[in-house]
Design a protein around this nucleic acid. Structure first.
Lengths: 224, 224
DNA sequence: CAGCTAGCCTATCAAATGATAGATATACTG
DNA sequence: CAGTATATCTATCATTTGATAGGCTAGCTG
């Protein structure tokens, strides 16, 4: 892309921390589109408007860059989920709170979180910690589903299938959050309701679940 | 992997069509794990047990290889969906039939269809046709959802969100079909029921929808 | 103003990657 | 049995890619 402001010659300009941030933004966008292996450090640098080696002033390696993106996404998610799980409340309300909070987080994020639904880079041993976090998140989600089923709040069924529905929906929501359809996500509540309706044994209780979830939401936000 | 039979020297051995098939199988598995950019022709060749240049005897380019995988996945899917859409039947039954048929297809496929949920390679102009097919499939799915909503069979709501739930669920089902959890997909009917319960205005009609869908299923299978 | 540091650049490297060239051996065909 | 097509190999190439080395400049600090 054309150099933004035009620091063609050299010299210290943009605050530095600012450049670092722009790198993360552009990298997340490119990684989401072309994957880890398909995104080159030259692509990223060009999008930011700096030279390719300048990337390595801000990030030691390409992997360190995506590591930071994974951390930004996964650490608050697992934190929030843990806060929810250990607290009081029905499984349905917790699940509802988690879904709407996650979608809100995606909307508010400066980065394109689509980058993370591709598990491609997570195979690297250096990112094993984040692979673990992702598994933890899924495990807790599944626990919520199973708890709801055993309590009778949810219809009985395969908790694994239900997990794929929840996780798949969240992933797709991420997937298009950066696209033209971002306005669609303006109502996280509708997204959560859509999923809950599939699980609740008694659909009429959805409103009650929603009210209960509203009180749990602050717990999730305490994360970070 | 260790060379399967051991045609170390040279010469024509395995039927050729057989090698071609093994390439597709191994490539789909690797592409699913490491993405298009992350999977090298050497990786694929090693997994098959042939030399890297031998790959180019069977496929002119790396892209031609994945093109064939995309075709195998998308052409029958769009075909089946079209057959369903133009025929008679309620939107709910059509959606139910589509979901269970798609999951059946994933199970029966020799290839790892996870490769296709990564849109990475689809950015390439040479694969624009398959990008279009994917969009067509989503459009038709959304049409089914909207039709169901307008007829009153489904609860009203944002058809875009509902589409993300359906598509996301199918993608995740693919994602793990090749993993340890493949047995979970043994019951495509349960998967379809899970989604339909979220959409049906009257959950009690699920059994009726299921019976109606059973008659539509052959139409989908006529594809290919 | 001297000096240091942060931030960026150009030039360049070693390794990896997609693809080609040419040799070789097997199997079918007449 | 000679000849042709098939399928594979080794050797190699031109690019691309992640990363390093070293220089230049702006701005802060004393």
């Amino acid at each position: 892309m054309t150099t933004p402001d035009g620091p063609a010659g050299a010299g210290a300009r943009s605050s530095g921390a600012d450049t670092r941030e722009r790198i993360l933004v552009e990298a997340s966008r490119l990684l989401a589109m072309k994957g880890y292996g398909g995104t080159t450090t030259r692509d990223i640098a060009a999008a930011v408007g700096i030279s390719q080696p300048s990337l390595f002033f801000h990030f030691s390696t390409k992997l360190a860059l995506v590591e930071e993106l994974y951390r930004y996404d996964l650490v608050p998610a697992v934190q929030g989920m843990e806060n929810l799980v250990v607290g009081a409340g029905s499984a349905g309300a917790k699940l509802y709170a988690m879904i709407s909070a996650e979608i809100t987080r995606v909307i508010d994020s400066p980065y394109d979180m689509r980058a993370h639904i591709s598990l491609e880079a997570l195979d690297d041993p250096d990112l094993a910690a984040y692979r673990d976090l992702l598994n933890q998140f899924d495990d807790m989600t599944r626990l919520l589903i199973r708890t709801g089923q055993e309590s009778g709040q949810f219809v009985p069924g395969d908790s694994w299938l239900a997990l794929q529905m929840v996780a798949g929906f969240l992933a797709r929501a991420n997937l298009f959050a950066a696209g033209d359809e971002i306005d669609r996500l303006s109502h996280p509540e509708e997204a959560a309701s859509l999923i809950l309706r599939s699980l609740l044994a008694e659909p009429a209780t959805l409103d009650a679940v929603r009210r209960e979830a509203a009180e749990l939401l602050p717990k999730y936000a305490t994360a970070e």
